Simulated assay, not measured.
Amino acid sequence: MRLASLTASNSDILAALGVVEGVVAVDNHSDAPGLERAVRVGPDLNIDVEAVRLARPDLVLASLSVPGMERVVAGVRAAGLRTLVLDPVSVPDTLRDIREIGAAVGLPERGEAVAARLEAELRALARPFPRPPRVLVEWWPRPIIAATRDSWVTDLLATLGAVNALAERPGRSSPLTLEEVRAARPDLIVCSWCGARKLRPEVIEARGLGVPVACVPESGLGRPGPRLVEGARLIAAALARLGLESITAR
């Protein structure tokens, strides 16, 4: 099957399924191994639909986890290409998507195995705390944008025994003022800037909130797929470094 992947999260899923050799077109951000022969068709929000069409994919994979992807999807469908559009907002959604892609490429058993392994690896990182630590995941620094209630981040943190400090704020993400960040009372701020070449925790520390900052590459937290376990491990390690006393005191 000839495949096109327009988002890095879907490319990571295809790699975990072992089918990257069938990927004929891929977005510029995807960095899963084995994609060297695929045609690069532009950044996820600026896909060259004609280039995708010329690659003659049997199936195009897109994801609304990238804000603004709806316009790209409309263009791909207008080109008459068969498209599978995913829209995960939770960890269970992500596991479902892995299974769905596995079934779509004719490997349902492998999809089930990849999803089950991810679920088990995440559960293995769970840790009890006297009080669930409050974690704020920052997607961008200026303006401050952070993950809110309807994000897979909320479920991921719950699996680790923590809570999203913005779990009561609706939406997938939201711009915040510095006062709103302070009011969220985070015990930990995770710097996971989307599309940034370099994470700079000192920018967050300079705000004077006195909250520890941990860095997690966007590839390990901003992509709802098998690499979420990478981000989960880094957050779990950062929470362990906080110490139980500081978490209890806040």
Rank of each mutant, 00 (worst) to 15 (best):
residue 146 A to C: 11
residue 27 D to S: 10
residue 145 I to H: 09
residue 121 E to I: 01
residue 53 R to F: 14
residue 199 L to P: 07
residue 98 I to E: 06
residue 231 G to E: 04
residue 123 R to S: 10
residue 197 R to G: 15
residue 89 V to W: 05
residue 204 I to M: 15
residue 123 R to H: 14
residue 21 E to C: 08
residue 25 A to E: 02
residue 9 S to M: 12
residue 78 A to W: 03
residue 59 L to C: 05
residue 250 R to P: 11
residue 194 C to L: 12
residue 52 V to P: 00
residue 162 A to T: 00
residue 211 V to A: 11
residue 218 E to V: 13
residue 219 S to G: 09
residue 232 A to S: 00
residue 124 A to K: 11
residue 80 G to T: 06
residue 70 E to A: 15
residue 145 I to W: 12
residue 81 L to T: 06
residue 133 P to I: 06
residue 129 F to Y: 15
residue 185 R to G: 08
residue 104 A to L: 13
residue 111 G to H: 07
residue 245 E to K: 14
residue 150 D to P: 06
residue 53 R to K: 15
residue 11 S to P: 12
residue 20 V to H: 04
residue 223 R to A: 10
residue 73 V to A: 00
residue 90 S to I: 06
residue 230 E to C: 03
residue 1 M to K: 10
residue 165 A to L: 05
residue 219 S to I: 02
residue 38 A to Q: 02
residue 73 V to Q: 00
residue 190 V to I: 14
residue 225 G to P: 10
residue 238 A to K: 11
residue 209 L to F: 13
residue 114 V to G: 12
residue 20 V to F: 00
residue 199 L to F: 10
residue 185 R to I: 03
residue 10 N to I: 01
residue 192 S to Y: 08
residue 69 M to T: 07
residue 144 I to W: 07
residue 84 L to D: 01
residue 51 A to D: 02
residue 113 A to C: 00
residue 169 R to G: 06
residue 188 L to G: 11
residue 40 R to T: 05
residue 98 I to V: 15
residue 30 S to K: 08
residue 20 V to P: 00
residue 5 S to A: 03
residue 156 L to Y: 08
residue 242 L to R: 09
residue 85 V to P: 09
residue 121 E to M: 02
residue 67 P to W: 01
residue 234 L to S: 09
residue 27 D to T: 00
residue 94 T to H: 05
residue 208 G to K: 01
residue 117 R to K: 04
residue 223 R to G: 12
residue 206 A to G: 10
residue 12 D to Q: 15
residue 160 L to T: 02
residue 196 A to T: 06
residue 39 V to C: 02
residue 22 G to A: 15
residue 167 A to T: 10
residue 17 L to V: 11
residue 121 E to C: 02
residue 200 R to W: 05
residue 79 A to G: 06
residue 143 P to H: 02
residue 25 A to N: 08
residue 148 T to A: 07
residue 63 S to C: 12
residue 138 E to Y: 04
residue 14 L to M: 11
residue 103 A to T: 04
residue 161 G to Y: 11
residue 123 R to M: 07
residue 230 E to F: 07
residue 237 A to C: 10
residue 147 A to L: 09
residue 187 D to Q: 06
residue 19 V to W: 08
residue 204 I to W: 13
residue 87 D to Y: 05
residue 139 W to M: 11
residue 224 P to G: 03
residue 77 R to G: 04
residue 45 L to Q: 11
residue 216 V to Q: 02
residue 106 G to V: 07
residue 105 V to N: 03
residue 49 V to H: 01
residue 105 V to F: 01
residue 64 L to E: 03
residue 220 G to V: 10
residue 116 A to C: 04
residue 229 V to M: 06
residue 14 L to S: 07
residue 183 A to N: 14
residue 109 E to I: 09
residue 248 T to I: 12
residue 69 M to Q: 15
residue 198 K to L: 14
residue 238 A to F: 11
residue 103 A to K: 04
residue 24 V to W: 12
residue 67 P to R: 04
residue 236 A to D: 13
residue 246 S to E: 15
residue 82 R to F: 03
